[in-house]
Nucleic acid binder design. Structure first.
Length: 204
DNA sequence: TAGGCGATGACCT
DNA sequence: GGTCATCGCCTAC
């Protein structure tokens, strides 16, 4: 079985720079979400909000969580190899990063001077970049000012993976990826609504 | 149209 | 470790 496109895209985004509103972040942690077949994905139910996930790849999908935090995703587009219908609307949630440009502005937006925590967690990352619902649908590859992705970077030599944070469904799918030895990577927390984790068969 | 939920994060013990 | 703020969506009626 081939690796889903969204997982390849998630790996490719690690180490890449996302330029926001006068702040740039090097991405250190991501989560992959499949399309209709992934019950944890917003694309599992096709609604007005998730419609963008079924559209063009490399668009920014911003949604609001708990009424307080904005979370930013990169739409990866259909995966013809993964679904004969080509209708697996994948997206990669940007979970954490390191501010590499505009640190002062990011500190002001976040209200902290702890640089490791400026973009730690999806809500904080979006906050540091100044991303909001107004940025939803932005073409991340379009040249010029505005939110966009920096150039591709060589694949990371080592990428760690684990279960996705905070999801109630498909909570044990290890589609969370992060770079080792990065203090900006957020801590794992299982959703209280997720069923109990399977007991590991061997102790590492 | 009303009610409930959630891909969070900060704070408290 | 646990609790809770807070509001945009989604679903059911």
């Amino acid at each position: 079985m081939s690796v889903p496109l969204v997982v390849l895209r998630a790996h490719g985004l690690l180490g890449r720079v996302l330029v926001g509103h006068e702040v740039s972040v090097r991405i250190t942690e991501v989560e992959a979400y499949g399309g209709a077949a992934d019950p944890a994905s917003h694309a599992a139910t096709r609604t007005a909000r998730s419609e963008i996930m079924h559209g063009e790849p490399w668009r920014l999908y911003v949604y609001r969580s708990y009424g307080l935090h904005s979370c930013a995703n990169v739409v990866t587009g259909p995966d013809p190899a993964g679904d004969p219908a080509g209708d697996t609307a994948g997206a990669v949630l940007l979970r954490a990063g390191v501010v590499v440009h505009g640190v002062e502005l990011a500190r002001a937006r976040r209200g902290t001077t702890d640089d490791d925590r400026l973009a730690r967690g999806p809500g904080n990352l979006a906050s540091a970049l100044g991303l909001g619902l107004a940025d939803n649908g932005t073409d991340l590859l379009a040249p010029g000012p505005g939110v966009r992705l920096g150039p591709e970077v060589p694949a990371a030599r080592r990428v760690l993976s684990g279960p996705r944070v905070g999801v109630a469904r498909a909570a044990d799918v290890a589609w969370r990826f992060w770079l080792p030895d990065e203090p900006s990577v957020s801590a794992y927390r299982r959703s209280p609504r997720a069923p109990a984790a399977p007991r590991p068969r061997t102790v590492p």
